[in-house]
Nucleic acid binder design. Structure first.
Lengths: 238, 238
DNA sequence: GGCTTCAATATGTATAGACATATTCGCTCG
DNA sequence: CGAGCGAATATGTCTATACATATTGAAGCC
C-alpha cells in the first residue's frame, strides 16, 4: 500500500494505518504498546508516541491509559457528510424501518462500463435494487453494485433483514468514499416506486467506496426532494 | 473565545488559533517564532513545536524553515465539500463568469425568524439576490443575507464586480459552515430566471457560516439539477 | 464473597539537548 | 552592480529522561 518513506514516525504511523485500513487489524483489536513498537522499530518512545497520537487524533485508534491502544470502531457518521446509515437515521426519528429487496442478481461487469470493470476486478458483481421504507412510506430507492472480489461474503446474503448499506458499514469499515450529489426529475417508473408524481424533484446521491485502494461498492440512492436534507458541517472539530 | 484550559501545548495552540480565526491575525501575517513563543509561555521548544505542528497539520498556518511561520491563505476548496467558490469553478471549466445582482436591500431581521435575528445580532442585514451566469447561461440563483454587525464593510459594496460569495471568501476566511442540501421543483418565477421549465428539478444548497462563533451569512443557492454535481470525497488525506 | 487498597502498567505531557536542513541575509569579490 | 558564498536563523526530527495520571488486576481484609 504505502511506500515506506519519510520520517521514522511517519513510517510507523503509515504502517499501522495500513494494517487497520486493510482490515488486517479488526476494530477492537489491541494495537502493540508503545514499548513493543519502540523495540520493533528501534527508536525512542517519543517517536512512537508521535505516530500513535496522530492516529488517535485521526480517530483510527482509541488509547486508554494502562489498558493500551485499540483499533477504533468506526463511527457511524462519516465525519462530515451525514448520509451513511439510512436505517439508523430513520430509527432515531422514531419511525419503523424496513428494506424491501426488489431485485438481486449476480452478473459480470458490462463490457462498455469502465467503472463496473474496475469494481468487478475480474470477478463477479452483485447487483441489487431495493427500497428503504420509513413507517409505511417509501424513503429512498437504491441501486447498488457490490464487488464480490472485494467482499466475497456478500454472495451468501439475501439482505432481507439488514440493508446492504448497513451490512457493508458493519463488515467493511474504514472505507474511502466519493459522493456525487445532484437533483433529477422522477421518471414514471421511479415515481411509482416512491409514490410520487412523475417529474417530482429527487435528490440523487451516488457513492463509490474503496477499501485500501480496492473498489468495494457503487450505489445510487434517490430521495424524494422535500423529504430529505443532507447536512454537512465544517469547522473546528473540537 | 476558548477557555484557557487543558495542557500547555493545547493552550498555546488554541490561543494562536483564536487569533487567526477571529481575523485579528490576517492571512500572510507572520506568526511569532518558536523562540518567541517559548519565552512568552515560559516553556520548552518541543511544547511550542507540538502546538504549531498541529496548527500546520490543520492547515491554519504555513511553516517555512528559516523564514518562519505564517497565517495560511485559506484554500479555496473547503476540505471536503466542493461548493464554495462558484466563480472559480466556472472559470476553471473555461467559461466566462458573471454575477448579475438582481436585488439589494438593507433591512432589519424579521421579527418571527430566529435565524435572522441571530444573524443580525441587533444590527442590520444586507439582503441580496443575484444570478451566477456561466457563458450566457444561468448557472445558479442565489439569495443571501449578510450580517452587517459581523461584516460592516459589506454595507459599502455593490457586488457588481465580485459576487458576494467570492468577496466573503476573500475577506472573511476561516469560517465554520453548515450546509443543507435538498432537491426542489422550480416554481414559475425561479424557472423563468434560470431559463428552465416550471417544475424542473433543482439542487438547493443552503449554507450558514460563522466566524469565531458569530453568524456571518446565510445563503441559499438553486442549481439546475442536471447541470451540477456536488462532489465530496472522504478518506486518507495523504 | 465482596470490599478496599495498592502496586504495576501504559499512556499523557513536558524538558533539555542534539543534529539536520532549508532559506535568507549580508558580505565579499569580480 | 551582480554573482557567489558563507553565516545566521527557524523549523524538523529524534533522543533520553522525568513525572503525572488513569486504570487494571491482584492481594489483603472484614
Amino acid at each position: 500500500m504505502s511506500v515506506t518513506e519519510g520520517t521514522l514516525s511517519q513510517r510507523i504511523r503509515s504502517e499501522v494505518e495500513d494494517l487497520i485500513r486493510s482490515g488486517a487489524w479488526a476494530p477492537g483489536r489491541k494495537v502493540p504498546s508503545e514499548a513493543e513498537l519502540m523495540a520493533r522499530f528501534g527508536c525512542s518512545r517519543m517517536t512512537v508516541n508521535k505516530a500513535m497520537s496522530a492516529l488517535a487524533d485521526e480517530g483510527l485508534i482509541v488509547r486508554r491509559r494502562r489498558a493500551g491502544s485499540f483499533v477504533a470502531r468506526p463511527r457511524v457518521h462519516s465525519t462530515v457528510l451525514d448520509i451513511p446509515d439510512i436505517q439508523a437515521q430513520i430509527l432515531t426519528r422514531g419511525e419503523a424501518y424496513r428494506f424491501d429487496l426488489l431485485d438481486r442478481r449476480r452478473r459480470k461487469a458490462r463490457a462498455g462500463d469502465a467503472d463496473e470493470i474496475a469494481l468487478a476486478a475480474g470477478g463477479a458483481l452483485l447487483a441489487l435494487r431495493g427500497l428503504h421504507v420509513a413507517g409505511d412510506r417509501p424513503f429512498a430507492l437504491e441501486d447498488r453494485l457490490i464487488s464480490l472480489t472485494a467482499v466475497p461474503e456478500a454472495a451468501e446474503l439475501d439482505f432481507a433483514e439488514e440493508s446492504p448499506g448497513a451490512w457493508l458499514l458493519h463488515h467493511v469499515p474504514w472505507t474511502e468514499a466519493e459522493n456525487r450529489i445532484s437533483a433529477v426529475s422522477a421518471d414514471a417508473a421511479v415515481a411509482d416506486l416512491l409514490a410520487l408524481d412523475a417529474g417530482a424533484a429527487l435528490l440523487a446521491v451516488e457513492r463509490r467506496t474503496w477499501r485500501a485502494g480496492q473498489p468495494v461498492t457503487w450505489v445510487r440512492q434517490l430521495f424524494p426532494g422535500e423529504a430529505y436534507d443532507l447536512v454537512a458541517r465544517f469547522g473546528p472539530a473540537r
